[in-house]
Simulated scan of single mutants.
Amino acid sequence: MVLATLHLIALSPGKTIPHFLRALNSQSIKPLVTAKVVRWIIKPEKLSTHLTKQGWDLLVIVPSSTPIPATFLGEDWAYRHWSSSAGVPSRLFNNFHDTNRGLLHPSPGDVPELTGSLHNPRKATSTQGLELNDELLSWSKAFKLGQTGAVSMLNLLSFNPSKEAHDSYKTYGKAFAETIGSRRGGNAKLVGRIVPDQKTADEDKYGWDEFALAHYPSIRHFVDMLASEDYQKVNHESRLPALRDTCILCTTELDPEVGGDTPAAPGIMRETEGDKAKL
Results as ranks from 00 to 15, higher is better:
180 I>F: 12
154 L>M: 09
149 G>P: 01
184 R>G: 00
199 K>L: 05
168 S>F: 02
150 A>G: 11
153 M>P: 10
142 A>P: 07
178 E>T: 15
162 S>H: 04
141 K>P: 01
174 K>F: 13
142 A>Y: 00
164 E>Q: 15
202 D>E: 12
179 T>H: 13
178 E>M: 09
137 L>Y: 12
165 A>K: 08
165 A>C: 08
130 L>S: 08
144 K>S: 15
165 A>E: 06
160 N>Q: 10
198 Q>N: 07
156 L>I: 06
196 P>I: 03
202 D>L: 12
149 G>V: 00
170 K>P: 00
151 V>D: 02
143 F>P: 01
135 E>I: 07
146 G>R: 02
191 V>F: 02
173 G>R: 02
157 L>K: 10
142 A>F: 00
159 F>T: 01
199 K>A: 13
174 K>E: 14
177 A>K: 14
179 T>I: 03
136 L>W: 07
175 A>C: 07
194 I>L: 08
155 N>Q: 11
170 K>C: 09
158 S>G: 07
141 K>D: 08
171 T>S: 12
148 T>R: 14
159 F>N: 02
181 G>C: 04
181 G>F: 11
185 G>N: 06
172 Y>K: 13
197 D>Q: 13
189 K>H: 15
137 L>R: 12
176 F>K: 03
176 F>H: 08
195 V>W: 01
168 S>N: 11
137 L>T: 06
161 P>Q: 14
161 P>I: 09
179 T>W: 04
193 R>K: 15
131 E>S: 15
134 D>H: 15
200 T>E: 14
171 T>E: 13
158 S>K: 12
147 Q>M: 08
169 Y>F: 12
149 G>Y: 02
164 E>N: 09
154 L>H: 10
191 V>L: 05
173 G>N: 09
153 M>Y: 07
191 V>D: 01
166 H>T: 14
151 V>P: 00
132 L>C: 06
165 A>W: 09
155 N>M: 04
147 Q>K: 11
195 V>Q: 12
147 Q>E: 13
165 A>L: 10
135 E>Q: 14
141 K>V: 05
175 A>T: 00
130 L>W: 00
134 D>I: 04
173 G>E: 04
171 T>L: 07
199 K>I: 01
179 T>N: 15
130 L>F: 02
157 L>A: 04
151 V>N: 08
143 F>A: 05
150 A>S: 15
200 T>R: 14
133 N>D: 13
183 R>V: 13
131 E>T: 11
177 A>R: 14
177 A>L: 10
174 K>C: 06
179 T>D: 15
141 K>Y: 05
182 S>K: 15
168 S>A: 09
193 R>A: 11
167 D>G: 11
199 K>N: 15
185 G>T: 01
137 L>F: 07
162 S>F: 06
195 V>L: 08
168 S>V: 03
168 S>L: 05
147 Q>W: 13
157 L>S: 03
202 D>P: 00
